[in-house]
C-alpha cells in the first residue's frame, strides 16, 4: 500500500546491557520515548517493519562487504551477542521473503542492494526491536548500510537508498513501516566510549527534523570522524529515513548518556 510510519532511534548495546548504570532520570526519559515510539509504530498497523541498521561485523565482514543489504529470509535470530551480556533473550523473528523479494526488485532500479536469506541480528537491530516489539509480534525486513568498514557509501547514496525504500514501499500492497537505527556522535567500544559531542548531535538533529537535504548531505567523512567519531558514520541510516519519509520530523528524546555511549534519540517523521 505505502510507507505508513517512519521513525529513528538509537541502538547502543549499553541501552539494555548497562541500563542499571545510567542516571535513572535520563534512562527513564529515553525508555518512555521508546515506548511512545512503540505505540505509534503499532498504531500504524504495519504488515512489515523495515529496520535499517548499521551493523557491526555480525553478518558482513571485509571478505565481502555490501554497501547496502536487505533481508529476504523466512526468519532471523538474535542477538548474536551473549544474551546475558546484552540482557536481551534470544528470539526468532518472522521475516517476509516474498515481500522482501518484491522490495529488492524495485529498489534495484536505482540502488545495487545485496540480498540476504540469512541474517543474525546484532544489537543494531535487536535493541530497538526488544523495545519496539517486546512480544515478538512483528514481521521484520532487516536492512543494512555499511557504516563500519571504509570505503563507505557516500551520503548522497544513503539518500538514494532511502528514496528507493520509499518507492518500493509505495509499490507493494502491504503496509510498510520504517525504523532507522544508529548513533549520532559516538566512539563506541573504544577507550573513548562515553565521549559524546552533544552540540554536534543537536545540530545534526536540527538538519534531520527540518529534512534539510542539502545540509544533511553536506558532511564529509573526515569532518564527521573529527567531530563525531567513527560512530558518527551511522548518520547514513537517519539520512536514508529522511529521504524515505520526505516530511518534517518530531523529536521525542535526545539524552546524552555516556554509559550508553550515545545521545539516546527517538524521533518520528511525517510521510509526505
Amino acid at each position: 500500500m505505502s510507507l505508513v510510519f517512519t521513525g529513528i532511534c538509537s541502538h547502543a548495546p549499553g541501552i539494555t546491557a548497562r541500563a542499571d548504570l545510567a542516571p535513572p532520570e535520563q534512562r527513564d526519559a529515553f525508555y518512555a520515548a521508546m515506548d511512545g515510539l512503540r505505540r505509534d509504530l503499532a498504531a500504524s498497523k504495519p504488515d512489515a517493519v523495515i529496520i535499517v541498521a548499521a551493523e557491526h561485523f555480525a553478518n558482513f565482514f571485509m571478505n565481502n562487504m555490501p554497501a547496502y543489504a536487505i533481508g529476504m529470509g523466512a526468519n532471523y535470530s538474535g542477538p548474536i551477542e551473549d544474551p546475558d551480556w546484552l540482557k536481551i533473550p534470544l528470539r526468532k523473528q518472522a521475516g517476509a521473503p516474498d515481500l522482501g523479494k518484491r522490495l529488492v526488485s524495485e529498489m534495484l532500479h536505482t540502488v545495487d542492494v545485496a540480498y540476504c536469506e540469512e541474517w543474525q541480528f546484532d544489537h543494531g537491530i535487536i535493541v530497538p526491536l526488544h523495545l519496539l516489539d517486546p512480544d515478538n509480534e512483528m514481521t521484520v525486513i532487516p536492512a543494512n548500510i555499511n557504516c563500519q568498514g571504509p570505503p563507505l557509501t557516500p551520503l548522497h547514496r544513503a539518500w538514494a537508498f532511502g528514496e528507493a525504500i520509499r518507492r518500493a514501499a509505495d509499490a507493494v500492497p502491504e503496509r510498510i513501516a520504517l525504523i532507522a537505527t544508529g548513533g549520532i556522535s559516538h566512539w563506541p567500544a573504544t577507550p573513548d566510549s562515553g565521549r559524546i559531542n552533544e552540540a554536534w548531535d543537536r545540530d545534526f538533529l536540527d538538519r534531520w527534523l527540518a529534512n534539510d537535504k542539502d545540509r544533511l548531505l553536506a558532511y564529509t567523512d573526515a569532518e564527521t570522524y573529527r567531530d563525531a567519531g567513527q560512530g558518527g558514520f551511522e548518520i547514513r541510516t537517519f539520512i536514508a529515513a529522511a529521504a524515505a519519509a520526505g516530511g518534517k520530523g518530531t523529536l521525542h528524546c535526545c539524552e546524552p548518556i555516556p554509559v550508553f555511549a550515545v545521545s539516546c534519540t527517538a524521533a518520528t517523521m511525517e510521510i509526505v
Binding site: L21, W187, P191, D192, G194, R195, V259
Partner: peptide, 29 residues
C-alpha cells in the same frame, strides 16, 4: 584498552586510534 596504549604505545594499524588522553574519564562509570 587504555592500559594497552600505555604499555604498548599508540594504535599501530586499523581505522581508529584513541582520541582521549590516557587518564581522561569519559565512560560515565
Amino acid at each position: 584498552m587504555r592500559d594497552g596504549v600505555e604499555k604498548y604505545g599508540p594504535v599501530r594499524a586499523g581505522l581508529y586510534a584513541m582520541t582521549t588522553a590516557l587518564d581522561e574519564k569519559v565512560a560515565g562509570l
